[in-house]
Amino acid sequence: MTTFLELLVNGVSIGAVYALIALGFVIIFRATEVVNFAHASLLLAGGYVVARLHPSIGFWAALAAGVAAAAAVGALVEFLIIRRANTASHGVLAIVTIGVDIVLTTELTRRIGTDVLALGDPWRDRVVRLGPVSVAETRLVALAVAAALIAAFLLAFRHTGWGVAMRATAEDAEAAALMGVRRGRVSMGAWAVAGALAAVAALFLCVFPTPGLDRGTAFAAMKAFPAAILGGLDSTTGALAGGLVIGVTETLVTGYQNDLAFLGRGAGDVAPFLVMVVVLLIRPAGLFGTKEPARV
């Protein structure tokens, strides 16, 4: 039972981090209708900046720089490429982001090489005991930060001018533009926000108990794709639910690996994808996704 509780807390925490990534993904999709396959490389970029800068300027400044860098990369991708793409087909735009992803990931993994980069976080490997359950401090911080960020964004969507502009654009881009919403600014903002969220997520994907930022981090970020599509690509609630489902599944399968030996080694890493396939079989639009009504 203790094991189960520990796994559950860890799962919820890692799920909250996936939800952060998935939230950025959904924000981009809602604002620009682009499925952003370059999301994992945005995350890698943020993490890489933090890892390289923290020895010289300290952790918090490095984190700020990492978040800013990832946001800038996101905004640049939107400004230089997505906005100028000679197409309106969303499939082709998705492929463009794949091209961006190939370039960014190749260059970043080349720079990382075979190293495992520490991010210099202040929590290190401290463990907190809550009754019989012991949890890494980083996991609790991750949970708190992710929850705070997600709550802040959900509130911002509802109550700020930026949020209203974004929702209006998602609803009907042309009408929003006619009402004076600057579409360019909205979509650039969405990409920047998504990059920033991804950088924060990168931090928590690379701290204890994970050894640090390495080539595999991009793969870890890939698990946010099932999280996003599981909840429904156009639903922020869905991103949260999807992230939690994926996080908990992954942790439980990894934790009970010995009892699930028939699934083979490393089943925890692929469990999110299995869950996604099962959910899509039952609900093709995701758990919370809306099936777009078509007007003819």
């Binding site: 492929i95 961006v100 370039v103």
Partner: peptide, 13 residues
């Protein structure tokens, strides 16, 4: 890889 990643972007643009 970098070259053809860039080529993908350039082709679409």
């Amino acid at each position: 890889r970098i070259l053809y990643g860039a080529a993908v972007v350039a082709v679409v643009l």
